[in-house]
Nucleic acid binder design. Structure first.
Length: 866
DNA sequence: GACAATAAAGTTTTT
DNA sequence: CTTTATTGTC
């Protein structure tokens, strides 16, 4: 099996301490480049080697990519593949994102939670659509309440597990009171659509922990060893969720680095990691401070920068790596010059033998990539831009997926209205509105209304016929997908989702004993509950009761109040259709199959599987269904006719079909719902890969977790990095500094940093102010080049040349009307006009090539000619 | 119902 | 200066 010794051989002392910690809380502060992933992987393997059943291990990551990589690496160390069918009941370690975990839980317990098995999952654009609808329904002008703003406020509330009722209660001012109304309406709309948004996945799961008896205890016993990666990025909902799961066995291992927290704006709460030791006073703390990635120089720069953050635990990164070269800081003239500088330098590295794929360019915002791209393109430097969600955000892709979602969930009106007229079938907005209105008046869903649209008065016969035809089409597809027409489910038991039977997963006799015990406990529990009583009438377990702290800030250390005040929760019932849960809950005998006995849908177990209503898989797989949809919906023909000349849309759709075929192959038992679950929660799907032989361009945020031998960071200017929106907020400013820190620590060997003296932002060409962060870097480790002209002491950020302001000003005296001049960017020109203003002398110059420009003499690096 | 004109807004974005 | 979404017109 696994030899614990070989697992630990090549680890350092602190790494080993972390990897061999078994029981009890553990905090791993993992500095940048400290071998975090390696430690996590080894620890999982070590646990298994100690006889801990693999399926009782839960590792939570933030991205699917991270989960995939970790699965792969764990599998590698353990010598067997870690598979994942996206279900709760699987005999191997669970490695997934928070959202995926929640989805698994909600689907597994869908009956008890009061959700159908076929709810849709709304991404942020769906959310925005629905919020717009809510605003409209409430007759709120979007002038003062932009959907984006409201969207943010609601998302924020959900991250903090604040229900609409609580939100309304706490709303003091007009804005919050209005948002409260929208929030309430929005939730109602979600319910009506039988949909959850991303944030709901978390929130509903935490609610289910409180409201559904036995659910939490079952999960607690299932996942006895919990590991959370990137813990500094968890929000409040995730925090509660994880700690609720860990509460019983207290085997909670969190890994993170406060200095790399860059998602506070998205609800991440840095206190989660800073206060872990308060939550678990008995926690072991391991600090990984040795860096294996970067040169001493790069590390020194990063360290000195981050030391400027005040809200911070001190950490001393060190390395045995070489000193390395100085970082190159270049003050460029403008963004074009900047791009040239970077491009030329990268080209030089390439000529010296560095592969393109080893280099990356980071920037604060996507808009900065453009000029950079042009420069690379012009000079034939291969590059890729990492924009994760690009593919799945394409219209044609979203359309196809909307069709599939509609097939799975006809109540999903966001998807329905998205595709009902794609391609156009004579069913326009006006007709749709009429039909929808009729439906509201007659208590019919939109889909039901469409079915009888031909008989609705006022609806044109053309629209009516189109609607009926559309409904027929969807029904046909539903049949193809194995969903009984007219019914919501056919109750077919779900297929076994366990993988390769036989091979013991985390085997050993200890495991078998453990799992048997757990299985027994489970079935006892379930029988206790399966006596026909409504689970919801049971009082919640003792530990779920009790009072809240003020402001919804419930910390784990106050374990009794983890779930807040009961009455608070009562204000937020799960769903009115809780009556569904009247049916006794009969969980599987082996909801969490032990390794040697994978779940098999025998006659017996078919009964014991929770009565989930997951539709069987489409005949011929998802791929077949998708192809049929694309063909018979007319999408294919439409794209062929009206799409781009190169048929790129069609190619994208074909790519989606290929991916679906892949899914069919990997998960032969996978259903349409499984597929949708996967694509809903997967935005990037290794789509971008590793840059493969090209320079990688990406935002600083996207760079987290990656490393490159050569890194360039551009746009070190006030208002860009730090971003202007963080101007007056010290916490935000510190986050910007962390962002820069993350960027720097991605570099292994070489670091380039650039700043443009003039930059065109939103069409306005303006002088820039250097980023204050530049001044925080240790001069000794920098090689500063100033191409921008020595005209402004500030522009150098305190470094560089010796020319004084006086030198330069002296030169300006000789300018007057009619003078021929040369400008570094605009070339030759003649001064047409000069005016003295408070802020300096302006000259209107007619350039030969660049046209007429107004420049401030003091700043423009003009040279007299003739 | 399709297209063009116009207006508004424009950090970052793991799911 | 862009891109995107909504409006208005044919």
């Amino acid at each position: 099996m696994i030899d614990p010794k070989s697992l630990l051989d090549d680890l350092t002392e602190p790494q080993r301490a972390a990897a061999t910690h078994v029981d009890g809380p553990l905090l791993i502060i993992a500095g940048a480049g400290s071998g975090k992933t390696r430690v996590i992987t080894r620890r999982v393997a070590y646990l298994v080697s100690q006889g801990i059943p693999a399926w009782s291990i839960l590792a939570i990551t933030f991205t699917n990519k991270a989960a995939g990589e970790m699965k792969e690496r764990i599998g590698h160390v353990l010598g067997r593949q870690v598979r994942d069918f996206g279900r709760l009941d699987q005999p191997w370690p669970t490695v997934c994102t928070f959202h995926s975990l929640c989805l698994r839980i909600l689907r597994h317990y869908s009956q008890q939670v009061g959700l159908g098995a076929t709810f849709s999952i709304y991404d942020s654009s769906d959310q925005t659509k629905l919020i717009k609808e809510a605003l409209k329904a409430l007759d709120i002008s979007s002038d003062n309440f932009s959907p984006a703003t409201v969207h943010n406020a609601i998302g924020d509330a959900k991250n903090k597990l604040i229900t609409p009722e609580q939100f309304a209660e706490g709303a003091r001012d007009f804005f919050h009171k209005t948002v409260a109304r929208v929030y309430t309406k929005y939730q109602a709309l979600l319910k009506q659509n039988n949909a959850l948004d991303f944030d709901d996945l978390l929130m509903r799961t935490v609610q289910a922990f409180r409201d559904v008896p036995n659910l939490l205890p079952e999960l607690q016993d299932r996942y006895q060893y919990i590991l959370i990666d990137e813990y500094q990025d968890t929000n409040h909902a995730q925090y509660l969720l994880a700690h609720a799961l860990a509460m019983k066995h207290r085997n909670m291992c969190v890994v993170g680095d406060p200095d790399q927290s860059i998602y506070a704006w998205r609800g991440a709460d840095l206190r989660n990691i800073l206060e872990f030791e308060r939550d678990y006073p008995d926690a072991e703390v391991v600090r990984l401070e040795q860096n294996y990635r970067s040169t001493k120089t790069i590390l020194a720069i990063a360290s000195q920068l981050i030391a400027n953050n005040t809200h911070r635990k001190k950490k001393d990164l060190w390395t045995e790596n070489a000193d390395g070269d100085k970082a190159e800081v270049t003050f460029c003239q403008d963004e074009h010059d900047e791009a040239e500088v970077v491009m030329r330098r990268l080209t030089e590295f390439h000529a010296a033998g560095v592969p393109w794929g080893d280099m990356a360019i980071f920037y604060r915002m996507n808009s900065l990539s453009r000029v950079m791209e042009e420069s690379l393109f012009r000079n034939k430097v291969p590059y890729v831009i990492a924009r994760g969600t690009e593919f799945y955000n394409r219209k044609e892709i979203k359309d196809v997926l909307a069709y599939l979602r509609l097939i799975a969930n006809p109540n999903d009106e966001v998807s329905l209205s998205r595709v009902v007229n794609v391609p156009t079938r004579g069913l326009g907005d006006a007709s749709l509105k009429q039909i929808a209105a009729w439906g509201i008046g007659n208590q019919r869903t939109l889909f039901e209304s469409l079915a009888v649209a031909a008989k609705i008065p006022g609806v044109s016969s053309r629209a009516g016929n189109a609607a009926v035809k559309f409904v027929e089409l969807v029904k046909k597809w539903r049949e193809l997908a194995g969903i009984r027409v007219g019914g919501t489910s056919d109750g077919t038991p779900l297929a076994p989702s366990s993988g390769t039977p036989g091979e013991g997963w985390g085997g050993g006799s200890v495991d078998a004993a453990n799992s048997a015990e757990i299985s027994n406990a489970d079935s006892e529990d379930s029988q206790g509950n399966a006596d026909g009583s409504n689970p919801h009438s049971n009082p919640p377990p003792e530990y779920l009761k009790r009072g809240p702290e003020a402001g919804g800030e419930i910390r784990v250390s106050d374990q009794a109040s983890l779930f807040g005040d009961e009455s608070e929760w009562d204000a937020a019932p799960l769903d009115e259709e809780e009556s569904i849960a009247d049916e006794p809950f009969a969980p599987s005998d082996e909801p969490f199959a032990p390794p040697d006995e994978p779940t098999v849908a025998t006659e017996d177990s078919a009964l014991s599987i929770p009565p989930s209503v997951i539709p069987p898989m489409p005949i011929g797989g998802v791929r077949n269904l998708m192809e049929e949809v694309v063909r018979s919906s007319g999408m294919e023909a439409h794209l062929r006719k009206t799409g781009d000349a190169d048929l790129s849309e069609l190619k994208n759709v074909e790519e989606l079909i290929t991916a679906a075929a892949e899914f069919d192959k990997e998960q032969p038992e996978g259903t349409l719902i499984d597929y949708l679950a996967q694509v809903s929660l997967v935005a990037d799907v290794d789509h971008m890969g590793d840059g493969g032989g090209s320079v990688t361009l990406m935002t600083l945020h996207a760079a987290k977790g990656l490393e490159f031998p050569v890194v360039a960071i551009i746009g070190l200017e006030e208002g860009i990095l730090p971003h202007s929106r963080s101007r007056d907020d010290i916490d935000q400013k510190e986050e910007e500094r962390r962002l820069f820190f993350v960027g720097i620590t991605r570099a292994r060997q070489r670091l380039l940093i650039t700043k443009a003296q003039v930059r065109t932002v939103r069409g306005l060409r303006e002088r820039t102010i250097p980023s204050p962060f530049l001044r925080e870097l240790p001069e000794d480790y920098l090689k500063v080049t100033d191409r921008a002209g020595l005209d402004d002491i500030d522009a150098r950020g305190g470094y560089g040349g010796s020319a004084s302001r006086d030198d330069h000003n002296a030169g300006k005296l000789g300018f007057k009307r009619g003078q021929m001049v040369r400008h570094p960017t605009f070339g030759l020109g003649r001064i047409d006009e000069m005016t003295d203003t408070g802020s300096g002398t302006r000259a209107v110059i007619q350039f030969n090539a660049a046209g007429r420009k107004t420049l401030i003499l003091e700043y423009a690096r003009l040279e007299k000619v003739g």
